[in-house]
Amino acid sequence: MSLLFPTHPTTRPRRRQRRHNHLMPFLFGLGLAAPAVAVVAYLLWPTWQSEKPDDPDRIPVSVGSTLFNVPTHAFRRKVQKHSGPQERVDLSYVYPSLEASETPRHVTRENFDEHVQPVDRIFLSISAHHNATSPDARLRTIYPLYAAQASRNADGLTIQPFHDYTPYASEDLFLGSAPALVARCTRDAATPGMCMSERRIGGADLIFRFPRAWLDDWRTVADAMDRLSAQLGGT
Protein backbone atom coordinates (compact mmCIF):
# COMPACT_ATOMS: atom_id res chain seq x y z
CA MET A 1 0.00 0.00 0.00
CA SER A 2 2.86 2.36 0.66
CA LEU A 3 3.94 2.06 -3.00
CA LEU A 4 0.55 3.31 -4.25
CA PHE A 5 0.74 6.62 -2.31
CA PRO A 6 4.38 7.74 -2.27
CA THR A 7 3.69 11.53 -2.16
CA HIS A 8 1.88 11.87 1.19
CA PRO A 9 4.83 11.52 3.57
CA THR A 10 7.01 13.96 1.55
CA THR A 11 4.63 16.91 0.75
CA ARG A 12 4.12 18.08 4.37
CA PRO A 13 7.82 18.72 5.14
CA ARG A 14 8.14 20.61 1.86
CA ARG A 15 5.21 22.90 2.74
CA ARG A 16 6.66 23.62 6.19
CA GLN A 17 10.01 24.42 4.62
CA ARG A 18 8.40 26.86 2.16
CA ARG A 19 6.57 28.67 4.97
CA HIS A 20 9.79 28.89 6.91
CA ASN A 21 11.58 30.31 3.88
CA HIS A 22 8.91 33.03 3.45
CA LEU A 23 8.97 33.94 7.17
CA MET A 24 12.71 34.46 7.41
CA PRO A 25 12.88 37.66 5.29
CA PHE A 26 9.99 39.16 7.28
CA LEU A 27 11.64 38.47 10.63
CA PHE A 28 14.95 39.77 9.31
CA GLY A 29 13.35 43.06 8.17
CA LEU A 30 11.52 43.42 11.47
CA GLY A 31 14.78 42.98 13.34
CA LEU A 32 16.37 45.77 11.32
CA ALA A 33 13.42 48.14 11.77
CA ALA A 34 13.01 47.68 15.53
CA PRO A 35 16.12 49.66 16.57
CA ALA A 36 15.18 52.53 14.25
CA VAL A 37 11.65 52.68 15.68
CA ALA A 38 13.05 52.66 19.21
CA VAL A 39 15.38 55.58 18.43
CA VAL A 40 12.59 57.66 16.86
CA ALA A 41 10.25 56.94 19.78
CA TYR A 42 12.92 58.00 22.28
CA LEU A 43 13.57 61.27 20.45
CA LEU A 44 9.90 62.14 20.04
CA TRP A 45 8.66 61.06 23.48
CA PRO A 46 7.32 64.14 25.33
CA THR A 47 9.61 64.78 28.28
CA TRP A 48 6.93 66.69 30.19
CA GLN A 49 5.17 63.44 30.97
CA SER A 50 8.00 62.33 33.24
CA GLU A 51 8.85 65.73 34.72
CA LYS A 52 6.77 68.07 36.89
CA PRO A 53 7.58 71.66 35.94
CA ASP A 54 7.24 74.52 38.41
CA ASP A 55 3.99 76.48 38.21
CA PRO A 56 4.27 79.70 36.21
CA ASP A 57 3.99 82.96 38.12
CA ARG A 58 0.69 83.82 36.43
CA ILE A 59 -2.02 81.89 34.62
CA PRO A 60 -4.05 83.50 31.80
CA VAL A 61 -7.76 83.07 32.47
CA SER A 62 -10.63 84.28 30.31
CA VAL A 63 -13.83 85.25 32.15
CA GLY A 64 -16.70 86.70 30.15
CA SER A 65 -14.37 86.89 27.12
CA THR A 66 -12.06 89.16 29.14
CA LEU A 67 -8.48 88.04 29.74
CA PHE A 68 -6.98 88.20 33.24
CA ASN A 69 -3.45 87.26 34.29
CA VAL A 70 -4.02 85.60 37.66
CA PRO A 71 -1.18 84.87 40.12
CA THR A 72 -0.82 81.11 40.41
CA HIS A 73 -1.02 81.07 44.21
CA ALA A 74 -4.07 83.37 44.39
CA PHE A 75 -6.58 80.66 43.43
CA ARG A 76 -8.76 79.54 46.33
CA ARG A 77 -10.07 76.45 44.50
CA LYS A 78 -7.73 73.98 42.86
CA VAL A 79 -10.36 73.06 40.27
CA GLN A 80 -10.14 76.64 38.92
CA LYS A 81 -6.35 76.64 38.75
CA HIS A 82 -5.92 76.32 34.98
CA SER A 83 -5.70 78.54 31.93
CA GLY A 84 -8.48 79.10 29.42
CA PRO A 85 -12.09 80.29 29.62
CA GLN A 86 -13.93 79.97 32.93
CA GLU A 87 -17.29 81.16 34.21
CA ARG A 88 -15.84 82.28 37.55
CA VAL A 89 -12.61 82.26 39.55
CA ASP A 90 -12.20 82.87 43.30
CA LEU A 91 -9.00 84.47 44.57
CA SER A 92 -7.50 85.73 47.82
CA TYR A 93 -4.62 88.04 48.68
CA VAL A 94 -2.84 88.77 51.93
CA TYR A 95 -3.70 92.28 53.13
CA PRO A 96 -2.17 94.83 53.03
CA SER A 97 0.86 93.36 51.20
CA LEU A 98 -1.41 91.91 48.47
CA GLU A 99 0.80 88.84 48.21
CA ALA A 100 -0.78 85.77 46.63
CA SER A 101 -0.30 82.92 49.08
CA GLU A 102 -2.12 79.60 49.23
CA THR A 103 -0.57 78.57 52.57
CA PRO A 104 -3.48 77.42 54.76
CA ARG A 105 -3.86 78.18 58.43
CA HIS A 106 -3.58 75.14 60.66
CA VAL A 107 -6.13 75.39 63.44
CA THR A 108 -6.33 72.83 66.23
CA ARG A 109 -8.37 72.61 69.43
CA GLU A 110 -5.37 73.81 71.42
CA ASN A 111 -4.71 76.96 69.36
CA PHE A 112 -8.27 77.78 68.29
CA ASP A 113 -8.56 80.84 70.52
CA GLU A 114 -5.43 82.47 69.16
CA HIS A 115 -6.73 82.02 65.60
CA VAL A 116 -9.95 83.92 66.31
CA GLN A 117 -8.61 87.16 64.91
CA PRO A 118 -9.48 89.67 62.20
CA VAL A 119 -9.32 88.37 58.65
CA ASP A 120 -5.99 89.21 57.04
CA ARG A 121 -7.04 88.58 53.43
CA ILE A 122 -8.99 90.40 50.79
CA PHE A 123 -11.14 88.06 48.71
CA LEU A 124 -11.90 88.56 45.04
CA SER A 125 -14.34 86.77 42.78
CA ILE A 126 -14.29 87.34 39.02
CA SER A 127 -17.43 86.18 37.22
CA ALA A 128 -19.04 86.69 33.82
CA HIS A 129 -21.86 89.25 34.16
CA HIS A 130 -23.92 88.24 31.07
CA ASN A 131 -25.18 91.84 30.71
CA ALA A 132 -26.66 91.99 34.20
CA THR A 133 -27.12 95.40 35.84
CA SER A 134 -23.74 97.03 36.22
CA PRO A 135 -22.38 98.19 39.61
CA ASP A 136 -22.50 101.84 38.42
CA ALA A 137 -26.13 101.53 37.33
CA ARG A 138 -27.05 99.89 40.63
CA LEU A 139 -25.43 102.75 42.51
CA ARG A 140 -27.33 105.38 40.50
CA THR A 141 -30.77 103.82 40.17
CA ILE A 142 -31.33 101.10 42.78
CA TYR A 143 -29.51 101.97 45.99
CA PRO A 144 -31.14 105.43 46.30
CA LEU A 145 -34.55 103.76 46.48
CA TYR A 146 -33.65 101.97 49.70
CA ALA A 147 -31.02 104.18 51.39
CA ALA A 148 -31.68 106.64 54.20
CA GLN A 149 -30.14 110.09 54.62
CA ALA A 150 -26.37 110.10 54.26
CA SER A 151 -23.82 111.35 56.77
CA ARG A 152 -20.07 111.89 56.55
CA ASN A 153 -17.48 110.91 59.11
CA ALA A 154 -14.38 112.84 60.08
CA ASP A 155 -12.25 110.91 57.55
CA GLY A 156 -14.37 112.00 54.59
CA LEU A 157 -16.28 108.72 54.16
CA THR A 158 -20.00 109.02 53.38
CA ILE A 159 -22.30 106.53 55.14
CA GLN A 160 -25.87 105.73 54.05
CA PRO A 161 -27.79 103.14 56.08
CA PHE A 162 -30.42 101.11 54.25
CA HIS A 163 -33.97 101.08 55.53
CA ASP A 164 -35.32 98.06 57.35
CA TYR A 165 -37.67 95.75 55.44
CA THR A 166 -35.73 96.36 52.22
CA PRO A 167 -33.51 93.92 50.27
CA TYR A 168 -30.50 95.58 51.96
CA ALA A 169 -31.73 95.68 55.55
CA SER A 170 -28.95 95.57 58.18
CA GLU A 171 -26.48 96.96 55.64
CA ASP A 172 -24.83 100.33 55.08
CA LEU A 173 -23.52 101.95 51.93
CA PHE A 174 -20.08 103.58 52.12
CA LEU A 175 -18.90 106.09 49.51
CA GLY A 176 -15.50 107.71 49.23
CA SER A 177 -13.52 109.68 46.68
CA ALA A 178 -9.82 110.19 45.95
CA PRO A 179 -9.46 107.23 45.67
CA ALA A 180 -12.96 106.15 44.70
CA LEU A 181 -14.72 103.67 46.98
CA VAL A 182 -18.17 102.11 46.84
CA ALA A 183 -18.83 99.37 49.39
CA ARG A 184 -21.96 97.75 50.78
CA CYS A 185 -21.33 96.36 54.26
CA THR A 186 -23.23 94.29 56.77
CA ARG A 187 -23.35 95.63 60.31
CA ASP A 188 -21.43 94.11 63.17
CA ALA A 189 -23.53 91.57 65.07
CA ALA A 190 -22.75 88.09 66.34
CA THR A 191 -20.11 88.04 63.62
CA PRO A 192 -18.04 91.00 62.40
CA GLY A 193 -19.49 92.91 59.48
CA MET A 194 -18.20 92.24 55.97
CA CYS A 195 -18.07 94.55 52.97
CA MET A 196 -18.58 93.94 49.26
CA SER A 197 -17.26 96.25 46.56
CA GLU A 198 -17.96 95.66 42.86
CA ARG A 199 -16.52 96.92 39.62
CA ARG A 200 -16.91 95.86 35.99
CA ILE A 201 -14.09 95.18 33.55
CA GLY A 202 -15.12 94.09 30.05
CA GLY A 203 -17.39 91.06 30.24
CA ALA A 204 -16.61 90.31 33.90
CA ASP A 205 -17.57 91.69 37.31
CA LEU A 206 -14.94 91.90 40.04
CA ILE A 207 -16.38 91.46 43.54
CA PHE A 208 -14.07 92.30 46.45
CA ARG A 209 -14.89 91.19 50.00
CA PHE A 210 -13.17 92.38 53.17
CA PRO A 211 -13.94 93.10 56.85
CA ARG A 212 -15.90 96.23 57.66
CA ALA A 213 -13.33 97.14 60.28
CA TRP A 214 -10.83 97.89 57.50
CA LEU A 215 -12.84 100.98 56.56
CA ASP A 216 -11.13 102.79 59.43
CA ASP A 217 -8.36 103.14 56.83
CA TRP A 218 -10.63 103.16 53.79
CA ARG A 219 -8.18 104.88 51.46
CA THR A 220 -5.71 102.02 51.83
CA VAL A 221 -8.48 99.55 51.04
CA ALA A 222 -9.59 101.49 47.96
CA ASP A 223 -6.00 101.75 46.77
CA ALA A 224 -5.52 97.99 47.26
CA MET A 225 -8.52 97.20 45.07
CA ASP A 226 -7.28 99.58 42.38
CA ARG A 227 -3.86 97.93 42.43
CA LEU A 228 -5.26 94.42 42.21
CA SER A 229 -7.52 95.40 39.31
CA ALA A 230 -4.55 96.86 37.46
CA GLN A 231 -2.31 93.87 38.18
CA LEU A 232 -4.89 91.44 36.80
CA GLY A 233 -4.85 93.43 33.57
CA GLY A 234 -8.37 92.74 32.32
CA THR A 235 -8.37 93.20 28.55
Rank of each mutant, 00 (worst) to 15 (best):
D113M: 07
A169Q: 12
A100N: 06
G64N: 00
G31H: 08
S97T: 11
R140F: 07
L145F: 13
T7Y: 14
S2R: 10
Q49S: 06
R219Q: 11
A38L: 12
P135L: 04
S83Q: 04
L139W: 03
P104T: 03
P118M: 14
V79L: 02
E114W: 05
H73E: 07
T235L: 12
R200Q: 15
T141P: 06
P96F: 07
G202N: 04
L32V: 09
Q49R: 09
R219M: 12
L91R: 00
D188H: 12
S127Y: 03
D164S: 09
Y42G: 15
S83L: 00
F68V: 07
G64C: 06
Q149V: 08
E114A: 11
Y168W: 13
R140V: 10
P161Q: 04
C185Q: 03
A41F: 06
R19V: 10
H115V: 09
A150W: 12
Y168R: 08
K78V: 00
P13A: 14
V89T: 02
R12L: 13
P118E: 07
I207H: 12
L23D: 14
R14A: 15
Q149D: 14
P71V: 03
T10P: 01
H20P: 05
R58V: 02
S50N: 10
D217I: 08
R121H: 15
L157M: 05
I201N: 04
D226G: 13
L30H: 09
L32N: 11
R138E: 10
P25H: 11
R15G: 14
E99G: 15
E99H: 08
L27Q: 11
G233K: 01
P35N: 05
D55H: 06
G203V: 02
S65V: 02
V116L: 10
A224N: 02
D172G: 09
F5A: 10
D55C: 03
L206V: 03
G233D: 05
H129Y: 07
L4N: 15
N69D: 10
R121G: 01
T11C: 06
L145P: 08
L43E: 11
K78R: 10
L157A: 04
T235P: 09
T235V: 06
H163I: 10
A213D: 12
